[in-house]
Nucleic acid binder design. Structure first.
Length: 375
RNA sequence: GGAGGGGUAGCGAAGAGGCUAAACGCGGUAGACUGUAAAUCUAUUCCUUAGGGUUCGACAGUUCGAAUCUGUCCCCCUCCA
């Protein structure tokens, strides 16, 4: 158990599994449920640390695989750790590179000992084992670090899912055995694909190993929504109340709200920042693609209900002009908006949970948002 | 006045008798993106009531068939007087 790391559950909604609490970390407290912006390379793309904080973000991610490749964990350690390196003093989490086992499928080879990757930058061979990943994560120095897992693709056969999940469990054990830093929390990752028995078995085995928190992985990778929701249910049923639960890779509005309703505390996703850079924003009234010609002379804000810097200072016509002109400012402004939008939705969720009205809140938000695809 | 070169879709630019409604790029219009190989990728872009209709400077020819060959004309560029 890491020092200075504790989840206090302060209220559970009487009508669903949603819970409000405070996660204490060495770099400060985080109210949960919480959405975490992704900053793969020790930067939330286009945003400064001050901007990240100003939108109400409390904890951000970085990625072990990407930082290992560039600039390398030794350099980050030499800089005094990732917080000092990027001049950000809030809580941080590093993902393990497990997702890259999935996303770089063409460039890797999985074995019991670990995974061999071909660097996406220069083709160099890179070997990641559970022990190596923990060693890298300790050097990077985030407050929360993830076990090395395999993110199982969807769909996949039962036998593949079983073999992979059992291996992920062995990897979790191996990683835990070598993790030494007491100022870092270590999370296990529940895999198991879409299979109930595997999900539950995986969750129980991880809980028996006593991690500081538990993630639900292998979600949001193309599976139908109901399948994803079941995967969450199977896992949560077997997870303890007093440890944080982190739903990995979820960033669309309906998944976030459904996850919270099921008792998820933490979520992360590249979606808000990636689609922002590509000109799409989420608003209280649904998705808006800023490049559409209909916004050419629209001098209203992106989202009238949003309190972000972008919405309080700029019009759609101006943002469209910036996008069409390929001006870099627009990527930052839209990223600020999308992150602030999701974070404010989750802030509202926390208030609703405290008053036992989360289900109404969720339904109200989704109804207004309108787009049933969930974006 | 003489000698060359050239006019192809909104723009640039391939094509030199049928496989061409015409490559490719830009521009335009839409869409996608979920633990970031992503300031990326995809679709579409002559008209259309979807069966067709009208195109490659203009007109007239040759040919079963022409953006492609022939003639005349109109423009543009370069060089020489």
């Amino acid at each position: 158990m890491s020092k200075n790391f504790k989840l206090e559950i302060l209220h559970v909604d009487k009508n669903c599994g949603a819970r409000y609490g405070i996660l204490h970390t060495p770099h400060g407290d985080v109210e949960v449920p919480c959405f975490m912006p992704v900053g793969t390379l020790a930067t939330v793309k286009t945003l400064s640390p001050e901007e990240i904080k100003s939108i109400g973000s409390r904890i951000i991610l970085a990625n072990t695989y990407h930082l290992h490749l560039r600039p390398g964990e030794d350099l980050v350690a030499k800089a005094g750790g990732v917080h000092k390196f990027m001049n950000y003093d809030g809580p941080m989490l590093t993902d393990s590179g497990g997702f890259q086992v999935f996303s770089l499928a063409q460039k890797r080879n999985i074995k019991e000992e670990g995974v061999t990757f071909k660097s996406h930058l220069n083709g160099d061979e890179i070997f990641f084992s559970p022990e190596k990943v923990i060693e890298i994560e300790e050097k990077i120095g985030a407050d929360i670090v993830m076990s090395f897992d395999e993110c199982i693709p969807y769909p996949v056969s039962y036998s593949y899912a079983k073999d992979s999940t059992l291996r992920t469990l062995r990897w979790a054990r191996r990683g835990k055995n070598v993790h030494k830093r007491e100022d870092q929390a270590l999370f296990g990752i529940v895999q198991g694909g879409e299979f109930e028995d595997l999900r539950k078995f995986c969750a129980k085995e991880l809980v028996a190993m006593d991690f500081d928190g538990y993630s639900i992985g292998g979600t949001s990778i193309g599976e139908p929504k109901d399948v994803c929701f079941k995967m969450i249910d199977y896992a949560i049923e077997c997870l303890p109340q007093d440890k944080p639960r982190y739903l990995m890779g979820v960033g669309s509005l309906d998944y976030i709200l459904e996850g919270i309703a099921k008792g998820i505390d933490l979520m992360d996703c590249v979606l808000p920042t990636r689609i922002a850079r590509h000109g799409t924003v989420m608003t209280h009234n649904g998705r808006v693609n800023i490049k559409r010609v209909e916004y050419k002379e629209d001098f209203t804000p992106l989202d009238k209900e949003c309190d972000c810097y972008t919405c309080t200072h700029f019009t759609k016509a101006y943002l469209r002009h910036l996008y069409v002109s390929e001006e870099q400012l627009v990527q930052r402004l839209l990223s600020i908006h999308n992150l602030r939008f999701l974070i404010s939705i989750v802030e509202g969720a926390r208030e609703a949970i405290k008053e036992d009205r989360f289900i109404e809140y969720k339904n109200e938000i989704l109804k207004k948002y309108g787009d049933l695809r969930g974006f």
